[in-house]
Design a protein around this nucleic acid. Sequence first.
DNA 1: AATAATGTAATAAAAGTTGTTACATTAAAA
DNA 2: TTTTAATGTAACAACTTTTATTACATTATT
Lengths: 138, 138
Amino acid sequence: MQMSNTRFATAIHILTLLDHNPEVWLTSEWIAGSINVNPVVVRKELGALQEAGLVISRKGKEGGSMLAKSSVDISLASVYEAVRKTEVLGRKNQHTNPRCPIGKEINVKLTDLFQETDRLLNHLLTTKSLHDFSEQFR
Amino acid sequence: MQMSNTRFATAIHILTLLDHNPEVWLTSEWIAGSINVNPVVVRKELGALQEAGLVISRKGKEGGSMLAKSSVDISLASVYEAVRKTEVLGRKNQHTNPRCPIGKEINVKLTDLFQETDRLLNHLLTTKSLHDFSEQFR
DNA sequence: AATAATGTAATAAAAGTTGTTACATTAAAA
DNA sequence: TTTTAATGTAACAACTTTTATTACATTATT
């Protein structure tokens, strides 16, 4: 189930680099060199992180990105929220049989369960800051 | 991140049907009719659930599947374990730059974080039985 | 004016997921 | 013993998601 993508890992990587280079406009190309992915992938992820208010970017020559606030004030939950796409336990079958008592109702009950797991994960990640994660590399 | 597949939902659906039809050999075709997926998909999932010791299947005429034990003794954690493929928070970037202090070490630290989230999820799902889930439909 | 960055569209390539066909094997029932 | 009807599984097709790439308009500094 879980995400079969690397978006959370990529976002954390980006943010950790930014935290380790405060007051510096890091370019997407430089960041991409550390993660070893295409710079456009980094720019797209930076877009999501900007929307979430976690980073600011500057266009033009000498442009780049830096953290929008102290890493102490960035929870991993906010990072997860910025990149999440589906629920933790995966997707639901979309065309279950309405004439079966189970098939008819199962998605309602799965929704409850999925939401509970998402809340739990959110709660854990809320207790962890980017700073906590990032300082492990010092 | 999360699973972008329907395996957990499918497995729960199958098991709930089996629980609601005790002592009956349900066929993959009948089950597939409730989920509205191909019977081969159901048989593949049943294979995983058999390996996990959650169901037993019988070949041949009058064959089918039933629960291997009481639904009271089947935790949702064991179901999740049977179908999981990646970690909750997704995948890691596989080719991070070894010449970057962050890129060099990040997967070690992400592994710690990912394991912690997986343990938390496992703990929650351990407290929930198939019976609890299944009886919601009665 | 030249340079160098972001933002983003469009598309290609790769990977993952689900669906389908086919059939050997198995076991009950006729 | 033959017929019937199920699983198990391989092989492959179709679809969806994810990642990579190219291209370039826009922006802003030098």
